[in-house]
Design a protein around this nucleic acid. Structure first.
Length: 120
RNA sequence: AGAGCAGGCGAGGCGGUUGCGGUGUAGUGACGGCAUGUCAUUAUGUUGAGGAAAGUCCGGGCUUCCCAAAGACCAGACUUGCUGGGUAACGCCCAGUGCGGGCGACCGUGAGGAUAGUGCCACAGAAACAUACCGCCGAAGUUUUGGACGCUGCGUGCAGUUCUCAAGACUGGCAAGGGUGCAAAGGUGCGGUAAGAGCGCACCAGCAGCAUCGAGAGGUGCUGGCUCGGUAAACCCCGGUUGGAAGCAAGGCAGUGGGGCAAAGGUUGGUCUUUUCCCUGUCCCGUUGAUGAGCCGCUUGAGGCGUUUGGUAACAAACGUCCCAGAUAGAUAACUGCCCUCUUUGCGCCUCGGCGUACAGAGAACAGAACCCGGCUUAUGUCCGGCUCUUUCC
RNA sequence: GUAGAAGUAGCUGAUGAGGUCUUAGCGGCGAGUUGAAGCCUCGCAGAUGUGGGUUCGAGUCCUACCUUCUACA
């Protein structure tokens, strides 16, 4: 689990990200991101949600495992991510063929493209 | 050695580093209605998925509504349906009976009633529930034809006629055989008969009665008359069970002041009886708190484990002991060490298919709690001893 | 999580409450017509989601699964 302040939970937040956010897709993952327009000193922490439907796999074991792996990656990257964003990661059926290093690579690329991820 | 049949245990073990959920203790910060409350965070201790958590097919607990409780009868609903037991309950489990299958270990079984009634049984076939198409018979009756013997009459080879024989027709007797079909009126054999038929007898199957064994379903034996299609996972009858509906997305989350209305009201499919019961109920306004979030429900339970006793068993009782997930966009992930097990390959030993050793690989399969239990069903990898049959050797 | 509905030719549908072998439209294939194609005419092939059971006989009755869809804050 991520820290509570970094979780995206409310249904309203998800819909605003889907409607107003930018979109990016990779082989197995998609990214929706929305930047809050507020005063810089009052920036909220970055919040992340993961969306994975039963179309990816009907088995809950598979879906939960993918979510855990993605959360584990995000936890490692969290100190390097910029505040003020709401992010939703969408998982596509291609993810069944991927393993942990591939998720790591794709997620890094997506976050770097949107400039949420700081350089090393 | 091969083929097979029923089970049982468990779901690899001990760790390390970085992280997550619950909870206890201690600290820090913020809020604050000042309550050792809420949120965040730090340290530390402890704890953290399954045998099916799954399908949602049954049975309960729990909650709300249908305005209280109990009882009787009727109606309705329920595929509930061999017997006895177990259980909180069940459509579940255990033990047994009958029937069916298998050489066997063993397996399956929706197994009340077809003589309470109704319906259906296509095509074929004479006929599908009580009939006769082909056929068999000539016993009985009527009648036709022909023949022989006899009798009567006379014109002596013709006519008539009784009985008998043969053939045919109608009435009749039969259900053995043929054919049809999933199914045809008990089956096989012998006798019997005009031909036949349980008409008689023997054995077998079925039915009824009696005796006996058993708690019972039923088993065994004897006797008897004479034989009755299938379908109830068709309607139905009988027995049995039974308040209904919704489902944790159920449902709950304040205190206080004032005023109005109703005086008797309230049964759950129907009717009736009894008992008391329940009591104030409901609406409006003011006030502080609370706006769809948070909290409670939420995990101590028909609980787990062990021992003893009772029981063939399912299971029950007693005693001891333990507290064992409670998340809410939903907690278990990433990397890695050692041991153990298995597999491949190499080397060595010998009794030649086993043992020892080294390296490498794998530890999987099915699969993720969402209010909680008891079952069923489905998915699925390893190991462990049992039992049966066949073959070979000693 | 809970509750419910439906699966029939390639697609969209129908099927008198068990009876042989059901069946419509579009599409496919073949033949005819045409110089060739289209339209038209004639013909053909092709399915009851899967497994088990009841029955002489299941699309239909019973049962276990599979798939798809819907509703509920």
């Amino acid at each position: 689990m991520l820290p509570k302040q970094n979780r995206l939970k409310a249904r309203q937040d998800f819909t605003t990200v889907y409607q107003k956010g930018i979109r990016l897709n990779r082989f197995a993952l998609g990214l929706r991101a929305y930047r809050h327009v507020v005063q810089p000193q009052a920036l909220q922490p970055l919040r992340v949600g993961i969306s994975i439907s039963t179309k990816v796999s009907k088995r809950a074991v598979v879906r939960n495992r993918i979510k855990r792996q993605l959360r584990s990656i995000l936890r490692q990257l969290l100190p390097r991510l910029e505040n003020g964003w709401d992010v939703v990661i969408v998982v596509y059926p291609n993810a069944l063929q991927c393993d942990y290093p591939e998720f790591l690579q794709q997620l890094k690329q997506l976050l770097a493209q949107t400039e949420i991820l700081h350089g090393d």
